[in-house]
């Protein structure tokens, strides 16, 4: 089988390499130190994508991939602490930069529609932010009151 640059496994390897570069440039963690953690994240993704394929229910791969990450780092999991320590060498923000790079490139074709929706989206964002804050605050206040804590 010829490996294509379009294969999800190959793309994941490339993104992992890009992240290790960003992790070094931006957060001064050298790629050798970060490698074991990145390898663990890579394996979580590969196994997660495989589980997605064999499981019924059509759940998105993000569910299984994040669930695997949680299970492997839970304090009740024998190697949990070690896995958490190794993966902490890969900075969270370093992982977001390449994604937004690809997103930025593809965003160009939506620029006109974003321009059309730009101001409206900003107004919607404000309502979304107020909605989550007030929703949570009102529920928390009510439950605290009902349970006699305030």
């Amino acid at each position: 089988m010829k490996l294509s640059l379009k294969d999800p496994v190959v793309i994941t390897v490339i993104v992992a390499i890009l992240t290790l570069v960003g992790n070094f440039v931006g957060y001064k963690i050298d790629p050798i130190t970060a490698f074991p953690g990145m390898l663990i994240l890579f394996l979580i993704v590969i196994v997660g994508m495989w589980i997605t394929k064999i499981m019924p229910g059509n759940l998105p791969a993000v569910v299984y991939v994040s669930l695997l990450g949680i299970i492997l780092t839970m304090p009740w999991f024998p190697l949990g602490e070690k896995v958490a320590e190794l993966t902490s060498q890969v900075n969270f923000l370093a992982l977001t930069t390449p994604i937004l790079g690809y997103a930025g490139i593809s965003l160009g074709k939506d620029l006109d529609s974003f321009k059309k929706n730009g101001l409206r989206i900003v107004v919607v964002a404000i309502f979304v932010f107020v909605g989550t804050y007030l929703g949570s605050a009102v529920i928390a206040h009510t439950v605290l009151k009902l349970t006699g804590q305030i």
Partner: peptide
């Protein structure tokens, strides 16, 4: 996907 794995950890 890698970010989601990191998120889990």
């Amino acid at each position: 996907m890698l970010l989601m794995a990191k998120y889990g950890t």
